[in-house]
Design a protein around this nucleic acid. Structure first.
Ligand SMILES: Nc1nc2c(ncn2[C@H]2C[C@H](O)[C@@H](COP(=O)(O)OP(=O)(O)OP(=O)(O)O)O2)c(=O)[nH]1
Ligand SMILES: [Mg+2]
Ligand SMILES: [Mg+2]
Ligand SMILES: [Zn+2]
Length: 578
DNA sequence: GCCGTTTTCGGCCCGACTGTTTTCAGTCG
């Protein structure tokens, strides 16, 4: 098995153990082990070959043995035994809000329920409400959960919820009772998809704020309403949580509600090691320690400082190695939107874009950019009206002519998004590619090739001397199409060796290469280009989504080609040619 | 199952909300 399959296996084991009523800390050990694998910076094969797996934090000798077994044979008796004992339907039942492992176990043991269908008929017949721990309300909630299972469990593209967030946020901020308000959670961390919306407010009058929140017109249901916290379901099934705290505790609450969970747990553990208990309400002494509590914590930076850490930007709070970096003072200085000076991967109506060269150039200039690269599709992408050699050379001439014009508002670079054919050769002749300022290569066909073949194919294409950057290296469409199978570690190696950039495709549905890979690749010096892949002028705005992904990946402006000025880009491109 | 300026057992983040609880367990964030 490869690493990602082993990670899935360990996560599955954690859930299965939970359904067996196992020790929660053992369950967490499996989940932590999966995360530790995810964060590995040394290839798994190497660690196994050198017998160093158990030296990884979060992986002990027991997990090391199991991971090794999975890696070598894919077989693990523990998993097979668990699979045999736990009905697959129980996993689906966990998706129903209000049903956790304990309740699912009771339903299974006492009523023999082992599927959503059985759960539904039991609830409809009223037999669940007689069980201990259940009642009429929980029975009704189960039925509602089944009816809306898809809507309730769906994640949403961050980009699509921005208007909803801004709307709620401005509503909150317009209330007199609200002193401060922020969108927190995965949204604030810039995650590509969000499971819900999380809002945090500082106020002296929580009642007023929560009243407003739960009475918004697009609220379909109030799922919780307490002293400091409310949850609602919005019309499309998206959940929104609100937490209201006094201004004096806002920094703690904002940090808590921003997460991630794993980051919070790590930070709280660090506090404990220093004799402090940390919660969303503040610090408390732990055990017999009687040192004075840190005071005047009125922003997140002060909170981190009290724990001996540099201020960690929300995008980096995913519970990987950000605490270590913050302690050492070696957090990266993350790229900002204002660092962007242009963009390379954009289309015109020559292929499947909707606007012409001049429009795109004007759009770039309107953003204050110095240049724009046009990279239309190549001929084998027929569905996208890809350009053959002749049409592309005409575009090269048109761009040259545009750049000569006195009224040119922005420099245009001639490029193309050249298909990587199924055998790894490029779609356009060298004699044509040679005439371009730069060449982007991308897979647009034969997505289902086996991993080895896909990897060989892309590596072969990257050997081509004219290649400047690799576009959307996994082809994923968030929430829609899985990434195709490819060995990203090998691709990253090759890109480093050949001085090829890997793009961050900034289309909010792609955000590919993923920030999780960038966390590792950034440290190794791999360059990126944040590419809007705009098919119309308006979509140049996707750049913001790409910058967020770059920030999550720990990238500085230096690692991003399109933070360079026009003159720097020109000399860099010339240099590459020689 | 992992881990150790409390080193090989006894901890493991901490709190809000709900429902059915008669004093708190389970779920969720
Ligand atoms: N300390 C602590 N904080 C938690 C825990 N679970 C959630 N939080 C905090 C951190 C989360 O970012 C924040 C909001 O919770 P969510 O469940 O909405 O998670 P988040 O927004 O990170 O991801 P999401 O996209 O909603 O799935 O609450 C937990 O178990 N412990
Ligand atoms: Mg959330
Ligand atoms: Mg939430
Ligand atoms: Zn296109």
């Amino acid at each position: 098995m490869d690493k990602s399959e082993i990670i899935e296996r360990l996560e599955a084991i954690a859930v299965l153990l939970e359904l067996q009523g196992e020790n929660p800390f053992k369950i967490r050990a499996y989940a932590q082990g999966a995360r530790a694998l995810e964060a590995l910076e040394i290839p798994l094969d190497v660690l196994i070959a050198e017998d160093r797996l158990a030296t990884v934090r979060g992986i002990g000798s027991a997990l090391a043995d199991k991971i090794t077994a999975l890696h070598e044979s894919g077989e693990l008796p523990l998993f097979d035994q668990l699979k045999a004992k736990v009905a697959p339907g129980l996993l689906e039942m966990l998706e129903i809000p209000g049903l956790g492992a304990k309740k699912v176990r009771i339903l299974n043991k006492d009523l023999g329920i082992d599927s959503i269908a059985a759960l539904q008929s039991a609830a409809e017949s009223g037999s669940i409400s007689n069980l201990k721990g259940f009642g009429v309300k929980s029975e009704a909630k189960i039925l509602q959960g089944i009816r809306n299972r898809e809507a309730y469990s769906a994640r949403h593209l961050r980009w699509n919820v921005i208007p909803v967030v801004e709307n709620i946020l401005s509503g909150l901020r317009s209330l007199e009772a609200v002193q401060q308000a922020e969108a927190a959670g995965s949204f604030r961390r810039g995650l590509e998809t969000v499971g819900d919306l999380d809002f945090i407010v500082a106020s002296k009058d929580p009642e007023v704020v929560m009243d407003w929140f739960v009475k918004q017109s697009h609220v379909s249901e109030i799922t919780a309403r307490g002293q400091t916290k409310s949850s609602v379901r919005l019309e499309d099934g998206l959940q929104a949580d609100l937490r209201v705290v006094p201004a004096s505790q806002y920094a703690f609450a904002l940090h808590h509600f921003t997460g991630s969970k794993e980051h919070n747990v790590a930070l709280r553990k660090r506090a404990l090691q220093r004799g402090l208990s940390l919660s969303e309400w503040g610090f408390d002494v732990r055990g017999g320690n009687s040192q004075p509590l840190p005071s005047n914590i009125d922003n997140e930076s002060a909170l981190f400082d009290a724990l001996g850490l540099a201020n960690i930007p929300p995008e980096l709070r995913e519970g990987y190695d950000e605490l270590k970096l913050a302690e050492a003072g070696s957090l990266p200085k993350l790229i900002k939107c204002s660092d962007i000076k242009g963009a390379f991967h954009n289309h015109t109506n020559a292929s499947d874009g909707h606007e012409n060269l001049e429009d795109m150039a004007e759009g770039a200039a309107a953003r204050g950019w110095e240049y724009i690269g046009i990279a239309d599709h190549s001929k084998s992408s027929r569905q996208a009206n890809g350009l053959n050699e002749e049409r592309l050379l005409r575009q090269v001439d048109a761009i040259a002519a545009y750049n000569q014009r006195d009224d040119a508002c922005c420099h245009i670079f001639s490029g193309c998004e050249c298909d990587i054919l199924p055998d790894g050769s490029l779609d356009l002749a060298d004699s044509t590619l040679e005439k371009l300022d730069y060449v982007i290569i991308a897979v647009h066909s034969a997505f289902t090739q086996p991993r080895e073949q896909m990897t060989r194919r892309i590596l072969r294409a990257m050997e081509h001397p004219f290649v400047t950057m690799l576009a959307h290296p996994t082809g994923r469409l968030l929430l829609k199409r899985e990434p195709y199978e490819v060995d990203m570690e090998a691709i990253i190696e090759k890109a480093l060796a050949k001085n090829i950039a890997i793009e961050i495709n900034a289309n909010p549905k792609r955000l590919d290469m993923d920030w999780r890979w960038w966390l590792k690749a950034a440290k190794r010096g791999l360059k990126t280009s944040i590419n809007p892949d705009a098919h119309r002028v308006e979509q140049l705005g996707y750049i913001a989504a790409g910058v967020l992904t770059a920030r999550k990946g720990g990238l500085t402006a230096n690692s991003v080609l399109n933070t360079q000025s026009l003159t720097e880009i020109i000399s860099w491109l010339e240099q590459r040619e020689s």
